[in-house]
Design a protein around this nucleic acid. Structure first.
Lengths: 331, 331
DNA sequence: GTGAAAGCGCTAACAT
DNA sequence: ATGTTAGCGCTTTCAC
C-alpha cells in the first residue's frame, strides 16, 4: 500500500504538500495538485484508516445492531442502510443481538471499542422488557450518535424512524371494509411489543370508526411453532371474512391451514399479512402483504445519523421522529 | 477513554512499563503488573484500535461477503462465523454482494481498505458465471487470507468449506428409497450453480445404484416467481411418490400446490426440501428438510481463516477442503 | 525491573 | 506556495 511518504519521495515534495494536495487545500498550486493526484491514482493510493482514525478521532464508520438477521424485514432495512452508508463513504459494522439483552450490551461495547461514529439500532425484545437502556444512554457521553428504528424506546433522547403502525393497519383494515368485509379478525405472534399494541390499536379504531367494533376479534399466538392447533380451533369456533396478520409468519401458516383444512371457507376470506414481498409468494395464491418499506427506513435512519455525525460540536438539534406509512399490496 | 499515558501518570511509571505490564511481558515485576492491571480494570481501559492497527498492521478483524443475506442459510452461516470470531476476539465486517459481480468487487475493496486480516466469502452467482476472480486473487499479494464456503471456485488456491452436496442428496434419496419410494422427482430453482450439479448428481447416483435410473425425473424452474403454473403442469403430467427440492423455496411452494390443488395425491407423496429448519414450519404438515448445518460451516470457515492469519510469515500450509455432510430431518 | 525514544501514517498549526 | 514539526496511542528496541 502506497503511503504519503512514498508519494512525497517520488515527487520530490514534502509529505504535507502531498497531504494537502490530496485534500484540495487552497494553499497548494494547481499544477502540484494535478501531479500529486495523478500519481496517487496510478499507485492506487488509499489513506490508511488507522492513521486517519488515530489523528481525526473519526472512523467514518457506523454500527448497526439488529435483533434478528433472519427476519427479511431487518435484512431489508440493513440493505437500505448499507447502500446509503456506502454512498456517503461510511463503512458499516453489523451486529446481531438475537433479541438478547446481554448480546446487545456486548455489541454496543464492541462497536464502541471500534470507535464507530454512530449506531443505528432496533432494540432487542429482552432489552425492551427489562427497560434497561444504560448501555445506550452511555453513548452520548462518548459522543457516539444514536438512531433508533422500528423497535423504539421513548426513554432515549435520539432520532427515531418507525412505520406508523397504527395508521398503517388502520388503512389496511379500512381497505378491507371498503371491499365489503365486516368480520375481520386479527392474529398476532408479536407478544407485548409496542409494535403489536399500535397495530392492534389501528385495527380497533378502523372498526370503531365504521361502527363495527363489536366484531373485534383478536387471536394471540405465543410460540409460532405451536400455532397449527390454535389456528384450527380458532377457525372452527369463529366466523370471519377477512384476517389481518400483524407478524411475519402467522399469515402464511394461517392461509395454509385454512386453505387445506377448510377449503370451503377459504374462498370467502381475504388475508392480509405483515410479510416481506418475497415471502408473499410462498403461498398459492400469494398473500396480500403490507409493504413495510424497509429499505427506505434504512436510508432515512442513516441520513439522520449522518446529519448528527457531521454536526459541529457547538451545534444542537432536537430529536426527530420520522413516521413512515406502510402501503398495502393486493395481489 | 483512558490511555496508556493516563494510566502511567496516575501510577507514576512510564508508558512503556504500563504497556508491558498489560501485555504480561516477563521483564516487569509481579507487583507492578498487579497495580497496573487493577487500575486498567477500574478505568475500563481498552487499547485504541487505531493506534494498535497502525503499529501492528493487524486489525484483528475479518470480512464476510455473502451473496444474499435474506437467505436463512447464509444468515445462519453468518451467525456461526460471528460467534466463533467474537470468541477469538475478532471483529466481523459484513458485506452483501446481492449476487452481483460489481458489488462483490466493491466489497473486497472496502474490506481491503479496512485492512481486515482475512475474508470469508461465498461467491456471487454473477461472478461464478463471469469466471472473473481477479479481485480475490489480488488478496494474496496483500497478505489478506481467504476462505471460501458453499459457492466455491476451484480456481482459487485457498481453504474451502462446503456441504458435500452430492453425498448429502444421495443419502436423502436413499432414505426415500428405503421407505419404499420408487418414483422420486427432483425440482431445482438453482440454475446452473455447481451446487445444483452436485445435488442432481447425488440424486441420480442413488437411483442408479438401486437400479431405477429410468425413473429419473427433473424439473428445473427458472424464476421462482413464475413457479406456480409450472408445478401444476408437472403434477398433472407426471406420476411420483416422492419429491426432493434442492433449493430453499420450491419445496414449500410445491407442497402447497400439491396439497391444495391435488389433495388426493398429496397423501402418498413424501417431500424433502433444502430449507432452513425455521421455514419447515411454514407448511402444515411441516416439510422434511435437509439440515445444511450453516452454523457449523460458519465456525469451521472462521477457524480455518484464523489458522492462516496466525501462521507465521515463513510457515506454509496447503489448502484444506472441508466437506460437511448434511443430515435429513423427517418430521 | 524500568524507562527513553523511535516510528507506524496521517493532519494541521506554524514557519519560511 | 511549500516545508517543518509535533503529536494522535501504541509497541518495541535498546539503554540504564
Amino acid at each position: 500500500m502506497a503511503t504519503l511518504k512514498e508519494l512525497a519521495k517520488s515527487l520530490n515534495v514534502s509529505i504535507s504538500t502531498v497531504s494537502k494536495a490530496l485534500n484540495d487545500a487552497d494553499d497548494i498550486g494547481e499544477e502540484t495538485k494535478k501531479r500529486v493526484k495523478e500519481l496517487a491514482a496510478t499507485l492506487d493510493y488509499k489513506p490508511n484508516k488507522f492513521a486517519l482514525g488515530l489523528k481525526t478521532k473519526h472512523s467514518k464508520s457506523i454500527g448497526v445492531i439488529l435483533p434478528d438477521i433472519q427476519n427479511p424485514y431487518f435484512a431489508e432495512v440493513l440493505y437500505g442502510i448499507e447502500k446509503a452508508a456506502l454512498d456517503a463513504g461510511f463503512d458499516t459494522l453489523i451486529c446481531v443481538s438475537n433479541e438478547s439483552y446481554q448480546q446487545e450490551v456486548k455489541s454496543v461495547r464492541m462497536l464502541t471499542e471500534n470507535l464507530v461514529d454512530g449506531i443505528i439500532i432496533s432494540i432487542a425484545k429482552e432489552t425492551l422488557n427489562l427497560k434497561d437502556f444504560q448501555h445506550l444512554e452511555k453513548l452520548k457521553s462518548k459522543k457516539i450518535q444514536l438512531v433508533q428504528f422500528d423497535r423504539v424506546s421513548s426513554n432515549l433522547a435520539c432520532d427515531s424512524v418507525q412505520i406508523d403502525d397504527q395508521e398503517s393497519v388502520k388503512n389496511a383494515t379500512q381497505q378491507l371494509i371498503d371491499t365489503g368485509k365486516k368480520h375481520i379478525a386479527l392474529i398476532s405472534g408479536l407478544g407485548s411489543l409496542n409494535v403489536a399494541k399500535n397495530r392492534i390499536q389501528g385495527y380497533k379504531s378502523a372498526l370503531r370508526e365504521n361502527g363495527i367494533s363489536k366484531h373485534i376479534k383478536i387471536l394471540e399466538v405465543d410460540h409460532i411453532e405451536k400455532t397449527h392447533v390454535q389456528f384450527r380451533n380458532f377457525i372452527q369456533q369463529n366466523t370471519f371474512d377477512a384476517v389481518i396478520s400483524i407478524d411475519n409468519k402467522s399469515g402464511i401458516i394461517f392461509q395454509n391451514i385454512l386453505q387445506h383444512q377448510f377449503p370451503e371457507r377459504f374462498e370467502n376470506v381475504k388475508i392480509i399479512s405483515f410479510i416481506h414481498e418475497k415471502d408473499a409468494l410462498l403461498t398459492s395464491p400469494p398473500l396480500n402483504y403490507i409493504n413495510q418499506r424497509g429499505a427506505e427506513i434504512g436510508a432515512i435512519s442513516f441520513n439522520l445519523l449522518k446529519e448528527r455525525i457531521l454536526l459541529k460540536e457547538d451545534e444542537t438539534k432536537n430529536p426527530v421522529h420520522e413516521k413512515v406509512i406502510a402501503s398495502i399490496n393486493f395481489q
